[in-house]
Design a protein around this nucleic acid. Structure first.
Length: 292
RNA sequence: GCGUCGGUGGUAGAGUGGUCAAUUACAACAGACUGUAAAUCUGUCGCCUUCGGGCUACGAAGGUUCGAAUCCUUCCCGACGCA
């Protein structure tokens, strides 16, 4: 059977993914699934650069505004929801277009990573978080030598989670990837460094103009704690334009470190939109040919 | 003009005779990534290197000393105070 085609549009922040995805969706009878770890939350709009209703130009967008700020969202939930969204879109004879900059989320779908199903154990976490990384590493070593070997022994967050899994089910399962029933066509949008920086500056300034500070005030009023605000990213904790620009540039670099590993991504500058559309046509043709 | 304090690596800023190529932070560069992922974490960060080490460096030039970023002299520059 032919694998059904899913278009993926990824790239660093401020490269114009959202707009481009709408364009592609228009052209290919598509619907968009966002791959952004923060845009899933209701109420984080300006700081996350969420696309507006108007900018959506009538294209349905999935996985935006799907959880309350009080709930914690995680990759696994994203994975589940995104995969069912893909199925649903395809069942209506439309093309799913995944668009976003959260590499981890994109891989969760396109690589079919199987995550351990152990839920967070807040009590245990509280205890573990008080310990030093050395202590945590020792504990993990005792519980699961295999995972201890490949874990980052200085990364507390990872150590805590690994111990959490190991205490629940004995050992951390080896990482597994399952073959996806879909064919993903990955398009990466990139900009030369100086252009990217300029776009980031522009974008951040616009954020402040649009009322980022007001948005934060509103969140605080709604009972969001400082700690939680920090979790929502640097835009949400005592931001100044300079600080946000600086942090965004660093973040963009981290994104690229992630994307670089994926050799399936075909990279384009956003201005090459014709070339991209041609590439998409070609990719879908190839699929058709394989069919015969 | 006199006096005081200061001039340290891309920046800020420690160090005040040896363990100093120089704490640390930031920036920069590279990287990791098993339910927090705009998160979390790692490495490199004067030049050269056969990775043992070699060379040049703490405003400039001299000097003291076995040894100086650190002490002395002069000069240059900056801040402040007095004229």
């Amino acid at each position: 059977m032919q694998k059904q085609k899913v278009i993926v549009i990824l790239g660093q922040t401020a490269t114009g993914k959202s707009d481009f995805a709408v364009k592609v969706a228009k052209k290919y009878n598509g619907e968009i699934i966002s791959a952004d770890s923060r845009q899933v939350y209701k109420g984080l709009d300006i700081g996350t650069g969420k696309i507006s209703k108007k900018e959506m130009r009538g294209i349905p967008h999935y996985l935006i505004d799907v959880v309350s700020l009080k709930k914690k969202f995680a990759v696994t939930e994203y994975q589940k929801k995104a995969i069912s969204a893909i199925a649903e879109i395809l069942s209506r004879g439309k093309t799913p277009v995944i668009c976003g900059g959260t590499g981890f989320y994109i891989d969760a779908i396109t690589k079919g990573v199987v995550f351990p199903t152990v839920p967070p154990n807040l009590k245990l976490r509280k205890i573990l978080e008080k310990k030093s990384t050395e202590e945590l590493f020792k504990i993990l070593k005792k519980l699961d030598t295999r995972r201890a070997k490949n874990i980052d022994s200085k990364n507390k967050v990872r150590l805590v989670r690994a111990i959490e899994i190991a205490t629940a089910i004995g050992k951390v399962p080896e990482i597994k990837e399952t073959k996806s029933p879909f064919k993903f066509i990955k398009i990466g949008l990139y900009l030369p460094e100086d252009k990217l920086k300029k776009k980031i500056e522009k974008r951040v300034k616009k954020m402040f103009q649009m009322g980022l500070l007001k948005e934060i005030k509103r969140l605080k009023k709604a009972g969001v704690s400082d700690k939680r605000l920090k979790e929502f990213g640097f835009e949400y904790f005592n931001p100044t334009p300079e600080k946000v620009i600086k942090e965004t540039i660093k973040y963009a670099k981290r994104q690229m470190t992630w994307f670089k590993r994926d050799k399936e991504i075909k990279w384009f500058e956003p201005i090459e939109s014709k070339a991209i559309l041609a590439f998409l046509n070609e990719s879908s043709d190839k699929l058709q040919v394989k069919l015969k």
